[in-house]
Design a protein around this nucleic acid. Structure first.
Lengths: 272, 272
DNA sequence: TTGCTCCTCACGTCACGTGAGGTGGC
DNA sequence: TTGCTCCTCACGTCACGTGAGGTGGC
C-alpha cells in the first residue's frame, strides 16, 4: 500500500503541512519520494510511526523530544521517567491555571455583585439590620488615602480567609484631614491575630445606610444627606460610623472613580 | 520621579526586553525618550499601567488583547465578558490537561505493575486462586491476530468502567489457526450489554499459571511447560484456558514483542 | 582600563499556517 | 478550460530571548 501525502493526512489526521515539516525535520520520512515530481509516498509502517507521534504530541512532547524518543526507544517502559516529568509539568501548569481561574472568578463575582447593587438601589437613605461579623482589623491614624495600604496588609495576612468587602470605622466626630482615627477591617471566616492585626467581632445592629456612587472626594454631600435624615428622624448616633467599600480601585485597573461605590453606615442607638 | 529602563524593570518585574517591546508596540510608552542617547525614562503613572499589563498578562491575555483593553477600558466592569471568556478558555484547557494527565497516570501505572511482576516472578509454573470478576466480552471466531480489534471494541464501549487487564478464553482443545473459538474479555466495574457485547461474571477458582515473556509466536513452549506440569500433578483441566495480557502493544508504541508479558492460565477441575 | 547601563539591529524560538506561484494528469 | 493534488519558497505567528556590536559616563 502506498499513500499520497493527502491520503496519509486524511488517515492520520496530521495536516499536510505538518507531514512536510516532519519530513524536513527527519521525524517521519516517506518511504519513497518521486525524484521527478517530488511527491511523497507513505506506507502502513509510516502509519504506525505517525500514530506514535500523534500520541506523544497529544501528551505535549515537543517535536525535538519526540525525535529523541523515536530514535532511542521502542517501548513505553523506556520513557517512564519522561512520562512522569510530563505529568508533573502538566500538574504544575494546571495549578497555575486554577489559580488564575480562581482570581477571574472572584473579579467577575465582585463586579456582578456591584451591578446587582446598582440595579437595586435608588440611592436613597434607608434603614437596615446588619449582622455581627468576625473581622481582622488595624487601628491607625493618618490621612484617608492610606486606607489602601492597610487593606492590602490585611488581605496579605488573611489571604483565603477573607469573606467580604473591606470597611473602615471612623472614630472621630467630624472630618479630620491628616490624622483621622481609623480602624480598617476585612470580614474573615477565621484567622489568628498577628503583630498589628486584631481579630474581633464587629457588632451588628440597626443602621441608617446610604449608597454613594462616585469619587471619595465627593463623599461630603452624601454624609450631609444621611445626617439630615438622622436628625429628621430623631435618631441618635452610635459612634463610630462606617464606610463599606463595595467598589473602589480594582485588582486590574485602578478603576474609574466615577464608578466607585461606597456605603455609608451610621448605627442607630437603641433605646435602653 | 524618573526611572531608567533598568530601574523600572526591577520595580515592575518586567524584563528590559519586554519593556522595549511594549514601547515598540505602543503598549506602554516611556514618558520621555532622550533624543541624544535614546534612553527611555518612566514615571509612576507608567508604573500603574505596567501593573495593569502584568495583571492582564498573568490572566493570559495576549499583547494585542491587552492593547485593545488599555485603549478602550478603564474599569473592570467593562471587560467582564472578556474575563468570562478567558475563564472559559482556561477551563477548557484544564479539561484537556486533566485528560492527558489521566492517560499518563494510567500508562505509568501499567508499566510499574509490569515491572513489579517481572521482579517478583521466577517464570515458573505455579498454582493460585483467582477471584470471580465481572467482564464485558465478545465471543468470536477467527485468527488470533484479530484479538486487538475486539479489545479496542470493548475498550471503546466500556470506557472508564474498565478496571483490569484484558484476557482471552480459548474454547478449542488444541491450537487452531485461522478460526479459533475465542472469547475476548475486559474486567469492568459495571456496564450494560450492547449489540455484540455480553456482560457476565467470569467464575474464579484454582488455576495453574505460567508467566510468558516474549512474542506471542513463542507461546507454544510455555504452553508445553504448563501442560507437562498439569500431567505430572495429575490435574484435570477445566476448559476453556485463559491468556491474561499483562503487557502487549502499548498505547504509545506497539512495543517490543520481546517484552510482551502474557500469563497462561489453566483452571483445575475441583473434585466433586 | 574595567564595569555598568543603555542603545539598535538581526536572528532564533515553536510548530506549524498562510499565501504565492507553479506543475501535472484527469 | 476547470478543478484537484502535489510541489517549493518565503514570510507570519507569539512574546519575547539571545547575541553582536556599539555608546557614554563614572
Amino acid at each position: 500500500m502506498r499513500y499520497s501525502i493527502g491520503e496519509f493526512s486524511r488517515i492520520t489526521g496530521l495536516t499536510i503541512k505538518a507531514l512536510r515539516l516532519y519530513h524536513d525535520r527527519g521525524l517521519l520520512l516517506p518511504v519513497v519520494v518521486d525524484s521527478e515530481s517530488g511527491y511523497r509516498y507513505y506506507d502502513p509502517q509510516c502509519l504506525e510511526k505517525a500514530r506514535t507521534i500523534l500520541m506523544l504530541r497529544d501528551m505535549m512532547f515537543s517535536l525535538d523530544e519526540i525525535m529523541e524518543i523515536l530514535r532511542d526507544c521502542e517501548d513505553e517502559a523506556e520513557i517512564l521517567v519522561l512520562l512522569q516529568e510530563k505529568k508533573d509539568a502538566i500538574a504544575a501548569r494546571m495549578k497555575d491555571f486554577s489559580r488564575i481561574s480562581r482570581s477571574l472568578t472572584e473579579i467577575i463575582h465582585r463586579e456582578k455583585e456591584v451591578s446587582e447593587m446598582l440595579k437595586g438601589s435608588q440611592f436613597e437613605v434607608e434603614e437596615k439590620e446588619i449582622a455581627s461579623v468576625l473581622v481582622a482589623s488595624i487601628r491607625w491614624k493618618g490621612p484617608y488615602e492610606e486606607c489602601g495600604k492597610r487593606f492590602s496588609q490585611l488581605f496579605k495576612a488573611m489571604g483565603r480567609f477573607v469573606c467580604g468587602k473591606p470597611l473602615c470605622l471612623y472614630y472621630d466626630e467630624g472630618v479630620r484631614e491628616g490624622d483621622a482615627d481609623i480602624e480598617s477591617c476585612v470580614p474573615i471566616r477565621k484567622g489568628k491575630e498577628r503583630e498589628g492585626i486584631t481579630v474581633r467581632m464587629l457588632e451588628g445592629g440597626r443602621f441608617v445606610s446610604l449608597l454613594h456612587k462616585g469619587p471619595y472626594s465627593a463623599l461630603g454631600r452624601s454624609y450631609e444627606r444621611i445626617i439630615d435624615y438622622m436628625k429628621e428622624k430623631g435618631h441618635e448616633v452610635e459612634a463610630p460610623c462606617r464606610e463599606l467599600y463595595h467598589k473602589g480601585p480594582g485588582m486590574i485597573f485602578k478603576g474609574n472613580p466615577k464608578n466607585y461605590l461606597t456605603e455609608i453606615l451610621f448605627q442607630i442607638k437603641e433605646e435602653a
